[in-house]
Simulated scan of single mutants.
Amino acid sequence: MYPIMFLVKASVTLLAVINCSGVHAYCENNASVKLSSYKYKYKSQVIDDASDIISMTVDHRISKATCDYTDSYGFRGNKVWVDNGCRAVFKICYTKDAGAYCQHKTSLRLSSNGYQYASQILDDAAIVTSMRVRHQISKATCDYGDSYGFRGSTMWVNNGCRAIFSVCFRKGTSVTVECSSRDYKPKVCKIPTNGGRVLSVVPEKHKSRSPCLPGDSYFHTDKVIRVTNGCRAVFRVGIKN
């Protein structure tokens, strides 16, 4: 999963604040947690009353080492982690029970044939809120965050995982928006929401060598996506109508 950040540099007044302390529009449970990868070692912590963590974003970086999502920090289930020298205060959005945001539910089969990555966009979904193994088919294990997971309205499997999954989601539509920071300059791109509310924005196809990281090189509101630091990508935007 790739989360949404909440603050932008003061010089960019258009994107100054995003609702729900910048996590997700439907974030009803959030916590502020300080995590430190001392001597560049891996460190993890369980969020005690959380069933599933929905997003994790940097509130304030303390270390000189960068804090990059999936490289030096991330989450899995109800656990958050840091590595590679990252030290920061993080904003955590989570659910207290597995069905808290299960407004709509479906079952589907996904297969990582030949141990290859495979993904599928969930039709009629603005955002997937949880994904659990209902019946494992493969001999290879299906571990959340390692061999299966979700980002926005897209679900994925990898490393040989084949299973039938139970998926909770919020109904809506999804559109793609291409936005490019050329010569490392900021660029603002309009989202065609038609009056709807944006629930998720994730890079679907990278077009740059520079990474597209939430809160670092891309941000969003209900109306626009802003990219910077050389990020160029096609974004999948989930919209609640």
Rank of each mutant, 00 (worst) to 15 (best):
91 K>C: 05
54 I>F: 12
6 F>Q: 07
31 A>R: 10
90 F>P: 09
44 S>Q: 13
19 N>K: 08
37 S>C: 03
89 V>P: 00
52 D>R: 12
91 K>P: 04
104 H>V: 00
99 G>S: 15
31 A>W: 02
35 L>V: 05
97 D>G: 09
58 V>K: 06
58 V>T: 12
28 E>H: 03
94 Y>Q: 03
92 I>C: 09
21 S>V: 02
102 C>D: 01
65 A>H: 07
30 N>I: 13
66 T>D: 14
59 D>R: 13
80 V>A: 07
52 D>M: 12
99 G>A: 13
23 V>F: 04
42 Y>E: 11
58 V>I: 13
91 K>A: 07
43 K>F: 12
39 K>F: 11
24 H>C: 15
15 L>N: 09
81 W>C: 02
22 G>S: 03
21 S>Y: 08
8 V>M: 07
56 M>N: 06
64 K>F: 08
79 K>W: 01
34 K>Y: 11
68 D>F: 09
53 I>M: 14
84 N>Q: 12
94 Y>D: 03
8 V>H: 03
96 K>D: 06
92 I>A: 07
27 C>W: 02
32 S>L: 14
20 C>G: 01
25 A>M: 06
13 T>L: 10
78 N>R: 11
16 A>M: 06
101 Y>N: 15
17 V>A: 08
32 S>Q: 08
34 K>V: 15
68 D>A: 13
8 V>D: 10
53 I>L: 10
